[in-house]
Design a protein around this nucleic acid. Sequence first.
DNA 1: TTTTCCATTATGTCTATATTTATAGATTGA
DNA 2: TCAATCTATAAATATAGACATAATGGAAAA
Lengths: 229, 229
Amino acid sequence: MTATYRDVKADILEKITLGIWPPGSTIPKEIELAEIYDCARATVNRAMRELAEDGIVERKRKAGTKVRMAPVRQARFEIPIVRKEIEDKGTEYRYALVRKERQQAPDWLRARLRLNDGGAVLHLICMHYADGAPYQYEDRWINLDLLPNAAEIDFADTGPNEWLVATIPFSNAEISLLATMADAELAEHLGCSKGDALFQAERSTWWDGKAITFVRLTFRKGHRMTTRY
Amino acid sequence: MTATYRDVKADILEKITLGIWPPGSTIPKEIELAEIYDCARATVNRAMRELAEDGIVERKRKAGTKVRMAPVRQARFEIPIVRKEIEDKGTEYRYALVRKERQQAPDWLRARLRLNDGGAVLHLICMHYADGAPYQYEDRWINLDLLPNAAEIDFADTGPNEWLVATIPFSNAEISLLATMADAELAEHLGCSKGDALFQAERSTWWDGKAITFVRLTFRKGHRMTTRY
DNA sequence: TTTTCCATTATGTCTATATTTATAGATTGA
DNA sequence: TCAATCTATAAATATAGACATAATGGAAAA
């Protein structure tokens, strides 16, 4: 009989969507809601906290809880490992190392990774295929000052991404999504025409404030990143 | 002295990042952690629940909590209202209605919005400018069967998005991000060349299972969507 | 009048305990 | 041997009560 936090959350959400509590209005305080739904304040609190996390309401101590004027629409995109992404679609995954080269970090990379001291980096070009067709072109740079043993790894069989996630369990990252025009190299590897519009993701990764890796992932022509919310 | 759920979360996360609890390993059960940190089980529970929400650990009843082999990296992108996005950058926002037309829903739109009965739609083309320069081209379709009063609105001064969020407080949506080549129309409005690679977002929106609107947003050349996690 | 300070108050968090629920693993039966 | 069923267990959720924290609005002081 007594309401669960899900019930409370659902009911409040319904009141908001139906316009009973319009944007900008103040929702009754937790104690009152606890009485209304005949549950503990902690239960109401959890429901309200989740609604706040979802960007539907805004909470402030003393001020109370208000329905957001414009709900902060935030889409969550999962960034899976390519192999998993391909295999989850039921297609066969294949990986190939195109190029591997040890070199000094170019200026643009130093800026991107906020590196002060110019260091050695490992530059890798890899391809990922789904059912034999090109799926993703990976242009990766690994900071050898931080991960010197990366130079010893032979990335012929498994991609650098898989090695990295196994080596550095968790890290901070910055992702950018953008559109780019295919140059000759991309066109050749991804099997499209030069000048085609391609979807690209760039990711810079740090661990404990130190730059680990920068990667530019270019997807095959027509790729979409989709999510629901 | 006793640990807060933040302390517990931070400490567990540190143990994971330092490799003390490597991917795949099982974390001590909640009761044990509560003893270790000298706090209540609910405090540990909140810390662990958040770690699970963040995709760092995986929890299962009876089986315990395990460190994920590959942390599910999920990036959250906020989808703000264009006006807010532009104004938050400190640039001046300007809006213009390019075209407004009532028509029958074309087949591709019916498929996209999962409409059974062919209905009337309002087709709008709008432009959003930042400091006078083209910023975003909006190609919007509004379901007039569900929102008949949309036909009466004069979208000359404010964009349809702002009217929609004010009219429908909350809704479900599906977003796709992709790259596209500029056609003549896009090139002209966005001030770029035909064939340029442009970043595009498509959003379909439903309320209570009924399609409200479909919008295709094309950003100016070079636009990036960026987030940290 | 303006600024500083404080009481009030709503949310944030924690504790200790209880109940519910899912499930891994053991047991049982065909 | 294999599937159905049971059982012990760990997480999931709920609760009452308490204290912590931050922000508001007004009172007091300059």
